[in-house]
């Protein structure tokens, strides 16, 4: 198992959690709770820690716990690390969240019945990932009850060894330590030197489950402190498209390639037809089939990848995508990528 995987599993976000002022019934108000939240965990899993801290001051009523950041209700089914990468305004540490025990905004947030909801959301994601990788979900669906409990327990407790043992039964991919070590030592200097055969040979080729959180900016910004804040979920496109690792002669498939492949709307030069990839080459087929005159692109947006943030780091875009997948994916086998694009309107050359 790679050092990076360990780091991902041990990764945590420092949180300072305040109780919403409308739920404070005592003086002095309770101090905020300081929590180290696992990156691969989910916010509702913190409730058992938070409840004792705030329970004495809560107004009467039933608990329906939810969190917000600067007024934005947080989606509980997104891993905490991803929420942080996506939303935390730099350089805010710890990350200041507000917890609510009352008044669940059920029109915007999925209902959450505590750990059970989180667990099933996790398992359904795992099932989806298995389907993407293997074309069926049977290994997940046939998982024995003890395995299921153990797998979920390993995620809850951040136990990578247990996780790897149980997850290996799902046969969702192979991880080659040798390759990982080779590449990570070379990467920093010269990723090109890794060559293509080593890179693609060891990852299970095929579709990779990716959840991509995309937002776009118009203006230039130099550092992340200048990056515009996401104050509304409508500003984030949640893109759930698998990506297929493709190798071309003499080139490996990079993170840059992957992002562009997932977002053909923004990178139309990638629209050429590639055999056997029905998802991506749809534009090619569409041309012949469509009778709609509006289907041709009159104006193409020229987009530029500002940064890609995965598990709290911003890998160089030339990094082999297979390394990213093997090392930075979450335990439900999805790679969560936060992608910021700079988009400007320009007239396309047809």
């Amino acid at each position: 198992m790679s050092e990076t995987q360990k780091n991902v599993w041990e990764g945590a976000v420092p949180l300072q959690i305040h109780l919403h002022e409308s739920e404070i019934t005592t003086l002095p108000p309770p101090p905020p709770a300081l929590v180290l939240a696992p990156r691969i965990g989910y916010l509702p899993l913190l409730i058992s820690l938070l409840k004792p801290h705030f329970s004495s001051t809560l107004p009467p009523g039933l608990d329906t716990v939810w969190f917000d950041y600067k007024g934005l209700p947080l989606k509980w089914y997104i891993p905490t690390g991803v929420l942080f990468d996506l939303l935390c305004v730099e350089p805010e540490r710890p990350w200041n969240l507000t917890v609510h025990f009352r008044g669940y905004p059920s029109n915007v947030l999925l209902p959450c019945e505590g750990e059970d909801s989180v667990k099933w959301s996790f398992i359904n994601s795992l099932k989806e990932a298995a389907y993407v990788i293997n074309g069926n979900s049977k290994n997940v669906m046939n998982m024995s009850q003890p395995d299921q409990v153990e797998l979920w327990g390993s995620v809850l407790n951040g136990n990578l060894e247990t996780y790897r043992r149980v997850a290996s039964k799902l046969k969702l991919g192979t991880f080659e330590d040798e390759y990982t070590e080779n590449v990570s030592s070379v990467l920093i200097k010269s990723p090109q030197s890794t060559g293509d055969t080593d890179v693609t040979g060891q990852v299970k080729t095929g579709r990779i489950p990716v959840r991509l959180y995309l937002w776009t900016v118009n203006e230039e910004f130099d550092d992340f402190e200048g990056a515009p804040q996401i104050d509304n979920w409508d500003k984030v496109s949640y893109i759930n498209r698998p990506v297929e690792i493709h190798k071309e002669d003499g080139k490996y498939f990079s993170l840059n390639d992957a992002v562009k492949r997932i977002l053909p709307e923004f990178f139309p030069e990638n629209f050429f037809v590639i055999e056997g990839d029905a998802n991506i080459n749809q534009s090619g087929e569409e041309g012949e089939r469509s009778s709609d005159p509006g289907s041709s692109f009159n104006a193409v947006e020229i987009a530029e990848i500002k940064f890609v943030r995965i598990q709290g780091i911003e890998p160089i875009l030339e990094i082999p995508f297979s390394w990213v997948v093997n090392n930075l994916m979450n335990p439900e086998y999805f790679l969560h990528m936060c992608v910021c694009l700079k988009v400007s309107k320009a007239n396309a050359v047809q």
Binding site: T216, E265, S283, D292, V300, A303, V343
Partner: peptide, 12 residues
């Protein structure tokens, strides 16, 4: 209307 600044891909 996912991509606010972009003429969205027709099939979407």
């Amino acid at each position: 209307s996912k991509h606010h600044l972009v003429a969205s891909h027709k099939v979407e």
